[in-house]
Amino acid sequence: MTEPLRLSKRLVELVGCSRREAELFIEGGWVTVDGEVVDTPQFKVTTEQVALDPLAQATAPEPVTLLFNAPAGMQVQMAMASLKAETLSQEHRFSKRPLKGHFLRQSTGCDLQAGASGLMVFTQDWRILRKLTSDADRIEQEYLVDVSGEMIDEGLNALSRGMLYQGWELPAVKASWQSENRLRFALKNPPPGVFALLCEAVGLKAQALRRIRIGGVSIGKVPAGQWRYLSSQEKF
């Protein structure tokens, strides 16, 4: 009976590469076992057919950024645990093949408002993380806020100018009605709790918040609890 071997060792035997090259080939998604991609060098094989893609490159996979549509109130750690191949949005499965390495060493920036749903960003790219943190004051965010109550006269104009409310100096924001009971807000680096105050200041009560955009990146048609990859054309 054939003894099980690590996939990386079998690949070394098959193609004559170094152990490190074998690991990079496998982690990069270039190796199949009986026709299925396996990206774990420790995976054990016996008599299975192991093949290396002719276009394979022995380089570390490029860092990726994942855009997650968080259900309301989901904490960061729970959201991170939800990032897996199975929860990739069906509509976005054509762009990139998920690898186990895509879900490792992910960091998040641009915190979601407490209790809100919508766009969370997880990234392996230090340049994106730096932009989301160091440049937060310059990046506009867009939220949809479900409201109840009756807005005061000229409420939208008051929101666009900024105002003083119960001792709080509220920022000037872009605000518009999306529907009869839903407002769209756009502002840079919103402080915690600001949407509740903005709504109260014009006679409304915030019922639910959903972030749909950070800078030039929107969550798009991703169902709640699922995610997609940031494309190379998208910029925060």
Rank of each mutant, 00 (worst) to 15 (best):
G115H: 06
G118P: 15
S8N: 13
L170W: 09
P4S: 02
L112Y: 11
G155D: 08
L83C: 08
P54H: 05
V45S: 01
G225C: 05
Q77K: 15
V45E: 02
Q226G: 06
D153R: 15
S232A: 15
T65C: 12
E23I: 08
Q141I: 00
A158R: 15
K96T: 11
Q75N: 12
A70S: 14
T123I: 08
E154W: 12
K96S: 06
S89Q: 02
L164S: 07
E36Q: 13
A85G: 04
P41G: 02
R228M: 00
S218N: 10
H102E: 01
K9Y: 14
D53P: 05
I219E: 01
E169Y: 09
P223Q: 02
M80V: 09
A208R: 15
I219R: 02
S176P: 01
Q166F: 13
R19P: 06
L198G: 12
G28D: 07
S148L: 09
D53G: 00
P223I: 04
I212W: 05
P191G: 04
K188E: 07
E180T: 14
M120Q: 06
F43T: 13
V217G: 08
K205R: 15
T32A: 05
C199N: 03
L197M: 09
S95W: 09
S82I: 06
A196H: 15
V202I: 13
R20T: 04
R97A: 15
E36N: 03
P61E: 03
E27L: 15
A116I: 00
K221Y: 01
E91M: 07
E62D: 14
V145F: 00
V222I: 04
R97V: 15
A186D: 12
R19G: 04
L52V: 07
G16H: 02
L119F: 01
A175F: 09
M163R: 14
F94Y: 15
G101A: 02
A172P: 08
E48T: 04
G101W: 02
D53H: 14
L204K: 03
S218M: 10
G101C: 10
G225Y: 00
A158F: 08
I219T: 02
C17F: 05
A175T: 00
A58G: 10
T32F: 03
N69Y: 00
G220N: 05
R10A: 13
G28N: 04
R97M: 14
N69H: 15
G115Q: 09
L83T: 03
A196N: 11
R211D: 06
S8M: 09
L52E: 09
L83R: 04
A72L: 06
Q207M: 13
K9F: 10
